[in-house]
């Protein structure tokens, strides 16, 4: 059997080769393969993300189309709600409208004044405000008044009478003095 004798200079050369090998691995993984893999992984992630967006876009489109169909009634109704109130500050158009309305119902001298306006807690009504009005009618006949109030409630769906006060007049008991508190929902302009 022959024995392998390794000299000192050979050990140095082996050590040098090992260092060179480690250095090669370090350079390879840190400066070549590592960045390449990172960039590939980034691209893969971006591609998956875009692909999932593309896939979901089809369902989004079909969902939007079906929602458009379903929401036809709602949009029509919403437009009708919006159309109930004209442009401009409510204080400018609501009192005259009420005056004309009651005058058409043969209830004269109806005066509406604004008591206040408040926002809603519900997120759905963030664009809407509640206006509280006090409607004063100095003299009215009970039957006509009842009909007028019923007509008001039917023609103004977003108006709700919250308080009603009817008092007979001392000198003319066939007539009543009326105070109504009504709240009206109006979209913010």
């Amino acid at each position: 059997m022959s024995q392998v004798h390794i000299r000192k200079d050979q050990i140095q050369k082996i050590a040098l080769s090992t260092v060179g090998f480690v250095f090669l691995l370090y350079v390879y993984f840190n400066f070549f393969l590592g960045p390449l893999n990172r960039s590939r992984n980034t691209m893969l992630t971006a591609m998956k993300e875009k692909q999932s967006k593309l896939d979901s876009s089809k369902s989004e489109m079909s969902k939007a189309a079906s929602l458009e169909q379903q929401a036809k009634t709602a949009t029509t109704r919403f437009a009708a709600f919006k159309a109930l109130n004209p442009e401009g500050a409510p204080i400018a158009w609501f009192p005259p409208r009420i005056k004309v309305f009651f005058a058409n119902e043969q209830v004269d001298k109806a005066v509406a004044r604004l008591e206040g306006s408040f926002g809603f807690k519900q997120a759905e009504l963030a664009d809407w405000l509640r206006y509280n009005w006090v409607i004063n009618i100095p003299q009215a006949d009970y039957a006509r008044l009842g009909k007028a109030i019923a007509d008001l409630e039917n023609t103004e769906p977003l108006l709700s009478v919250t308080k009603i006060s009817i008092h007979s007049l001392q000198d003319q008991p066939q007539f009543q003095q009326v105070d109504l508190v009504a709240s009206n929902i109006i979209q913010k302009k």
């Binding site: 989004e60 969902k63 939007a64 929602l67 458009e68 379903q70 929401a71 709602a74 949009t75 109704r77 919403f78 709600f81 519900q122 759905e124 009504l125 664009d127 809407w128 977003l158 929902i185």
Partner: peptide, 15 residues
Amino acid sequence: RSTELSNIIKTTRVL
């Protein structure tokens, strides 16, 4: 548009 429609539906429901 979907978000808008959803909001309209919700608002109309509340109204």
